[in-house]
């Protein structure tokens, strides 16, 4: 890192959690409204990009939970697992099942699509975040 921008660095500390929260919100509203795992994941990658611009590639790498490859693997795992309950219910792979949870003030629908979306979120976040960080790392090596 050559020039560090103090304002950006301080702002990133506040903005990063905010952007991650926005990413999760986009993920959760995704099934019936615009949003979902892919878009949520992209928002999360934007948060990583912000960190890497403000504090360098190393800090950005640390900001990806579990490390990028592991997060990607877990994401694929979640998405694939979401198809498995259907097999036990004697339906084709990836047939989605829903459960209604009454929470008093609202009805929460939880189903395998949410699991699938969460998996996509993790894949996008892990894979693209990891690639982004490695591109920036190449760039930083080049300019010592």
């Amino acid at each position: 890192m050559k020039g560090r921008i103090l304002v950006l660095e301080v702002a990133a500390r506040f903005l990063h959690p905010l952007m991650m929260a926005a990413a999760v919100w986009v993920l959760l509203r995704g099934h019936d409204l615009p949003g979902g795992g892919f878009i949520g994941g992209l928002v999360a990658v934007c948060a990583t990009a912000l960190v890497s611009v403000a504090r360098g590639a190393e800090a950005a790498r640390a900001s990806i939970p579990l490390g990028a490859p592991r997060l990607t693997a877990i994401g694929v795992g979640l998405a694939a697992t979401s198809g498995l309950p259907a097999l036990f219910a004697d339906a084709p792979f990836l047939t989605h099942l829903w459960v209604e949870l009454p929470l008093g003030f609202t009805q929460l629908s939880i189903g395998t699509p949410l699991l699938f979306d969460a998996g996509v979120f993790a894949v996008v976040f892990g894979a693209l975040g990891g690639l982004l960080v490695s591109i920036l790392a190449i760039d930083e090596e080049e300019a010592p």
């Binding site: 490859p69 592991r70 990607t72 693997a73 877990i74 694929v76 795992g77 694939a80 198809g83 259907a86 097999l87 339906a91 084709p92 792979f93």
Partner: peptide, 22 residues
């Protein structure tokens, strides 16, 4: 049948994930 037909890609995919995690 659903299990048999998805296994050609699901099994290797699951193996790939496990090899990352162990």
């Amino acid at each position: 049948i659903s299990l048999l037909l998805t296994a050609p890609f699901l099994l290797p995919l699951a193996t790939a994930l496990l090899t990352v995690l162990v």
